[in-house]
Design a protein around this nucleic acid. Structure first.
Length: 440
RNA sequence: GCGAGGAUGGCCCAGCGGUACGGCGGCAGCCUGCUAAGCUGUUUCUCUAUGAGAGCGGGGGUUCGAAUCCCCCUCCUCGCGCCA
């Protein structure tokens, strides 16, 4: 949620950000109309309440003096009727106002490029050395603004889909039989690789000062809706039938909501939390996309980074979290690029977002493996997470970024580290965790 | 799942029909020639702000008036039961 006071005082940045994202000014205009109405009704209601309180006090005085009170009781009854009448209108206006308010997006960071469509995301940097099939070289160079270093492959690397089948490490058919498409049995050494990645990711972030948690995997509507833009993403969430519970799509949400309604001491900040959880996604809008293999599936494990901090530090932490993931990928020898997501592709909460995209040789493309967002005070305001300062309580800023999403990284490893013998080489950093150096 | 007890401001706790007591902590100030002790004020949210309204886990009800009484729900604690 945005800051209403700021919006009233200085609406320009809000109009500007909404426009850059491709929204009209209608929402903000509508908000101002409703806000004006709401405030005027609020005043009327409060004045009536003031009267009612005075009468009530008078009654208690009269009773003490043993004087009659019937007349004034009637006065209170009448006032209460007026209050109830006005309150009904107020409630209606207030609900509408809240709804419109929740649609107004966060103010963008100045550096965000104004455009629509992922193809307009701004290239920031490339890191590593990519294995590029000769026919994909042009695309690779264009995607890295000619800065990417690479080794040319004369043959097309085997796709992860084929490897999964050939090495007997994924069973999609039987999973489909019992759960439908986009489900999977992970088998044998690939399962060990997943466990290794999880442990590696947790150790990696733990060493960088993160408290590690495994959060609840289901959440109630209220905290979830405050941690994210739930109306937009409802169709991508699994909802439980008999309970007010949703399966989480990322541990960002329970971690963010963990401090809901709390007032922190200044010295507690920053709070770095690394979360491990399965992430459940319906992928409802993704029909026909990545239908084979485990690249896009209904659940996967993710190690997530999250930071609560003071406003003046959030841009530094945004870079820090981005660099953490880059370092992690680098330590696994995975080539990647970082892009700054353009204005039209950001969620309402994001002030700025980097996507980190790994290179997938058989696809000849960079694909998203991590997403690093600064939500400034937007998420914290909805969740009411504050910290105490000399000059009163202020909202914290929240920043989140993927640490490591298992299925995406496993696919990446399969595609990037194929051996001559048709196996998959395990990155050195992971060997202590897997106990083997190749899947074959 | 059953029974009992509980949820009050940042924290602890009192109040149990008349408009939230007190303590701790934080902040501001006073005093004291000291990093002590003491004193005063303040501490949540909203509004058109020297003023007012709301707020005692959430929602409803009774009443002129509800933290207080009644009903429903949620969560916590302790027993009992069941269980990986």
């Amino acid at each position: 949620m945005i800051d209403v006071k700021l919006l009233r005082e200085n609406p320009e940045p809000f109009y500007d950000s909404a426009r850059k994202r491709g929204f009209g000014k209608a929402e903000i205009d509508k908000f101002f109309t409703l806000d004006k109405q709401w405030r005027s009704i609020l005043k009327e209601v409060n004045d009536l309440r003031k009267d009612r309180n005075a009468y009530s006090l008078r009654i208690s005085e009269l009773i003490k003096k043993k004087e009659p009170v019937d007349e004034i009781k009637n006065l209170v009854r009448k006032t209460n009727a007026s209050i109830a009448e006005k309150e009904e209108i107020q409630k209606k206006v207030e609900d509408e106002r809240e709804e419109v308010l929740s649609l107004i997006p966060n103010v963008l960071h100045d550096s965000v490029y104004e455009a629509k469509g992922d193809e307009n995301n701004q290239f920031i940097r490339f890191d590593g050395k990519a294995l590029v099939y000769k026919d994909d070289l042009k695309e690779f160079l264009s995607q890295t603004l000619n800065t990417g270093s690479y080794d040319i492959s004369q043959t097309k690397p085997v796709s992860h889909v084929d490897l999964e089948e050939k090495l007997d490490i994924v069973d999609l058919e039987r999973a489909a039989k019992i759960s439908g498409s986009r489900f999977y049995f992970l088998k044998n050494r690939l399962l060990k690789l997943e466990l290794a990645l999880i442990n590696y990711g947790i150790d990696f972030l733990s060493a960088r000062g993160f408290t590690t948690v495994s959060p609840p995997f289901m959440m109630n509507y209220d905290p979830l809706s405050k941690a994210t833009d739930i109306e937009t993403f409802k169709e991508s969430l699994y909802k439980l039938e008999n309970d007010d519970l949703y399966l989480i799509s990322t541990s960002e949400h329970p971690i963010a909501a963990m401090l809901k309604d709390e007032i922190l001491d200044e010295i507690e900040l920053p709070i770095r939390v690394a979360g491990l959880s399965p992430c459940f996604r319906r992928e409802a809008g993704a029909h026909g996309k990545d239908t084979k293999g485990i690249f896009r599936v209904h659940h996967f494990y993710k190690v997530e980074q999250f930071v609560f901090c003071k406003p003046e530090h959030s841009w530094d932490f945004h870079e820090e979290l981005t660099h953490n993931t880059e370092d992690l990928l680098r330590s696994l020898n995975i080539p990647f690029r970082v892009v700054s997501v353009c204005s039209g592709e950001l969620s309402r909460l994001n002030a700025k977002k980097y996507d980190i995209e790994a290179w997938y040789p058989s696809q000849g493309k960079f694909r998203e493996v991590a997403s690093s967002s600064n939500n400034t005070d937007f998420q914290a305001r909805s969740l009411n997470i504050r910290y105490r300062t000399k000059d009163g309580n202020r909202f914290v800023h929240t920043i989140n970024n993927t640490g490591l999403a298992t299925t995406r990284i496993m696919v990446c490893i399969m595609e990037n580290f194929q051996t001559a013998g048709g196996g998959i080489k395990i990155p050195n950093a992971l060997i202590p965790y897997t106990g083997f150096d190749e899947i074959n």
